[in-house]
Every structure is written in C-alpha cells, then in structure tokens.
C-alpha cells in the first residue's frame, strides 16, 4: 500500500509540473501522465456546456509525446516561454489510490522580444493517481477562464 495522497504531495507534483513546462523541459512533460491519461485544454464555456472537444485533446500519453515531437520538429512559432503561477489546490474527492483536485493557475507568456502578456487563467481539474512512489495525472482538464486564445497555443498549459 503506497503512502496516502496528501495535500503536500499534490502541491509538490503541481509545482514540479509547471516548473517542467516553464523551464522548457518539454520532453519530460509527458512523464507526468499515466499511459491511459486524458489531457484536454478547454474553456469554461465549453466545460459548462459539456462540449467534448479540446484546443488540445490527448487520450494517450503517446499523443503527448507526439505533441512535443511536433513542437520541436514540425511546428513554426516564435520563441516564447510561459510562467505559471499556481494557487492552492483543493481536494474534491479522495478515493485513496486516486484523488480529484482543482488547482487555479495564471500563465504569463513571454515572447522573445520581451513582450509579456497574461496568456491564460483558469483551473486544472486533475485526477492524481499513485504510480510507484510518484503521483501521476490520470486526467488533467485544463479549463481556461476566457474563451479567447491569443494568436496560437504552442506550449501546453
């Protein structure tokens, strides 16, 4: 029996997750997910209306790997980075081996010329699952507050 999923473990995995993205180590990003994960970027309006489609929609970890390969090798976009600022997670349901939690985020996008804008705010609706000593995301629904995306979304949230 693995150690209980506590709030501090959830905070730690969320912190590591956004640090991975913000530091540009995108090749490690899929490792935060289980093989059968669902990762979806959507908006509050779509989420409320129950629309299934996502701006990004991946229902296997392999799709996340492919997204990074595509970003690195195929896609063209101006050099940019994100800075995620996270709020405190709320545990919505604790099933022992799996926890559902909600974590608010704020993401600034920093373009290569220095322009910095609020790119997205929203919340992560996550299902965290035990995977050995780690917690992995079996589900991460990224619900952006705004229905608008500026220019394009290259780097995942």
């Amino acid at each position: 029996m693995a150690a209980a999923i506590t709030l501090d473990r959830i905070i730690a995995v969320q912190a590591a997750y956004v640090r991975c993205i913000d530091s540009g180590e995108l090749e490690s990003w899929p490792d935060f997910f289980t093989d059968d994960c669902l990762y979806k970027v959507t908006t509050a309006e779509n989420h409320k209306l129950g629309f299934e489609a996502g701006i990004i929609y991946a229902d296997t970890k392999n799709m996340l790997i492919d997204r990074i390969v595509s970003l690195r090798q195929a896609n063209i976009y101006e050099k940019q980075t994100y800075r995620h600022i996270l709020g405190l997670p709320t545990i919505l349901a604790n099933g022992g081996n799996e926890v559902e939690c909600e974590t608010p985020f704020f993401v600034a996008r920093i373009m290569h010329d220095g322009q910095t804008d609020v790119f997205a705010t929203g919340r992560y609706l996550d299902t965290c699952r035990h995977a050995g000593n780690d917690l992995k995301f079996a589900r991460k629904i990224v619900v952006c507050d705004s229905s608008r995306i500026d220019t394009l979304m290259a780097i995942p949230l």
Binding site: I55, I56, D59, I76, Y77, L152, M153, A154
Partner: peptide
Amino acid sequence: LRRARLRQGNLAGPAGYVSMEDGA
C-alpha cells in the same frame, strides 16, 4: 468516429499541428 474527431481536432484549431502557424 466521435473519438477520432476529438483526437484529430489536434490537427486544427489554435494549437493545431497544421494550423497553429496560420495563427501567427
């Protein structure tokens, strides 16, 4: 078929593999 649409939705849209460049 619905699942195929959701997955292939990655091809287009603001984060689309073949359309994100068009946004820029």
